[in-house]
Design a protein around this nucleic acid. Structure first.
Length: 424
RNA sequence: GGAGAGAUGGCAGAGCGGUCGAUUGCGGCGGUCUUGAAAACCGUUGUCCCGUUACCGGGACCGGGGGUUCGAAUCCCUCUCUCUCCGCCA
């Protein structure tokens, strides 16, 4: 969430920047400042009363010790009124804090100054592109036909076991999954990321810290008996490693990579656009996360974008990089680049990665800070990116590399798959 | 799942109703000594909120929440977690 002090000191600027994200902050920002004023005022009054009570309590203690019981008892009576006042103020303070918090968590992150205005996906800005998308679809099959043809991914059996969106990967399909995961992890290690294996279920505090709660709870599977959420991305558990921590400045940046299965309910987003591997309830992803100094986060973002681009080049998949417009950005992000690969059999671009800088929006929620050389404490910046999500990579690999002789595996992946071709 | 014990500052570990934000040790930082280092000695060492923002002042925090009391790290209730034993088990 945004920092209160920043909101107070830059009220107009905050409202203007939120408008880029198509969020009308005129009313809520005013309310937040008003509630914070009330919070401060109440806090001040409460502190004063506590100070008085503390003084009297100490005096009573001394009186008892010196045997002046009568005087002590007289003093006791003085405190009862103070106690009532304190109780009242405390209740008001708690209420005010809760109201303030409820509003604060509804305000999205401010977009970076370079984020273009825009309504939705159609207004995203194409930053760069690489490779030659095959536009002639003559004789090319979409991946949902290819997986049946070669019997490598089985949606029907997945439906029997779990439901739609939970495919069973078989034979070379299963081995391709494992190969991609290992390839992505090894590449990240080479690029200096530390590998971690996080839990796949998280508590509410973790989901709240990265911004999945309170807004997007309908997108997560929830294990009600234990009140745990299945992770929609490894971003959640990996970033939460650093929750409530004060890091040493010289240890920054922290760079982690994690493979995990990801679970998404995708409530209300099913349709023909999302056939086959285009959208699943369970999928595999390798995620990179960085915790950086505020002065270095945009440099880190560029580095992460370069890194993801390198992966796609090694896989020889034509891609383009989009800078998301305000209207298409996520709630928590300050700047996001999306990667899309060309899918020849469907004749369209598929989003395979999203790389974002959250600045201190997540850090502020999760109290992720660092101490500088002077001993001062500041919020760190958090970033993450998919590197990469498997299903659409697989879709694109299958569709782009199909031939009468089968599906050709890109050279960089062959050491991991142990085969060069799917099919004959 | 059953029985018992516990949760205190970066770590270890005292305190069990009143100068306790907390003894002490280790670690960290600064200094004396030394050609340099080690050792020794001296000093310093948490976070958050509010006011002043040079200095400083007030408040809160001893796992979370609630209660008793003039006053709680200390007593009571409750939740969570950890450890030991038993059970179950990859």
């Amino acid at each position: 969430m945004l920092q209160l002090n920043y909101i107070r000191e830059h009220e107009q600027e905050v409202i203007e920047r939120l408008a880029i994200k198509r969020f009308d902050g005129t009313e809520i920002i005013g309310q937040i400042i008003m509630l914070d004023d009330r919070r401060r005022e109440t806090q001040k009054q409460l502190d004063d009363i506590q100070a008085k009570s503390n003084t009297i309590a100490k005096e009573i203690g001394l009186l008892f010790q010196s045997g002046k019981t009568e005087e002590a008892n007289r003093k006791k009576e003085e405190t009862s009124e103070l106690k009532n006042q304190a109780r009242e103020l405390n209740t008001r303070l708690e209420q005010t804090k809760n109201e303030l918090d409820e509003l604060l968590v509804k305000v999205p992150n401010l977009p970076h100054a370079t984020v273009p205005a825009g309504k939705g996906a159609e207004d995203n800005f194409v930053v760069s592109a690489w490779g030659e998308p095959v536009k002639d679809r003559e004789g090319l099959l979409p991946h949902w036909d290819l997986i049946t043809k070669y019997d490598i991914i089985d949606f029907q059996t997945g439906i029997k076991i779990s439901g739609s969106g939970f495919p069973v990967y078989k034979r070379k399909g299963a081995r391709l999954q494992r190969a991609l995961v290992n390839f992505f992890l090894d590449e990240a290690l080479k690029a200096g990321y530390d590998e971690v294996q996080p839990p796949y279920v998280v508590n509410a505090a973790s989901a709240y810290a990265t911004g999945q709660l309170p807004d997007k709870d309908a997108q997560m599977y929830h294990a009600g008996l234990d009140d745990l959420y299945l992770i929609p991305t490894a971003e959640v558990p990996v970033t939460n490693i650093y929750r409530d921590m004060i890091l040493k400045i010289q240890d920054l940046p922290y760079k982690n990579v994690a493979y995990s299965a990801c679970f998404r309910r995708e409530a209300g987003s099913w349709g023909k656009e999302v056939r086959g591997l285009n959208r699943l309830h369970q999928f595999d992803k390798v995620e990179i996360v960085q915790i950086t100094h505020p002065d270095r986060s945009y440099q880190a973002l560029e580095e992460m974008v370069e890194y993801v681009a390198g992966l796609l080049k090694k896989l020889q998949l034509p891609y383009r990089i989009l800078k998301l417009c305000g209207g298409d950005m996520s709630f928590t992000s300050a700047l996001t680049y999306d990667f899309e690969v060309w899918s020849a059999g469907q004749g369209r671009w598929l989003e395979v990665s999203s790389v974002s800088n959250f600045e201190n929006f997540q850090s502020n929620r999760m109290k992720l800070r660092f101490k500088d050389d002077a001993g001062k404490i500041h919020l760190a910046h958090t970033l993450n990116g998919s590197a990469l999500a498997l299903p659409r990579i697989v879709a694109s690999l299958l569709e782009n590399n199909q031939s009468p002789e089968g599906i050709r595996i890109p050279a960089a992946l062959v050491p991991y798959t142990g085969f060069e071709r799917i099919g004959q």
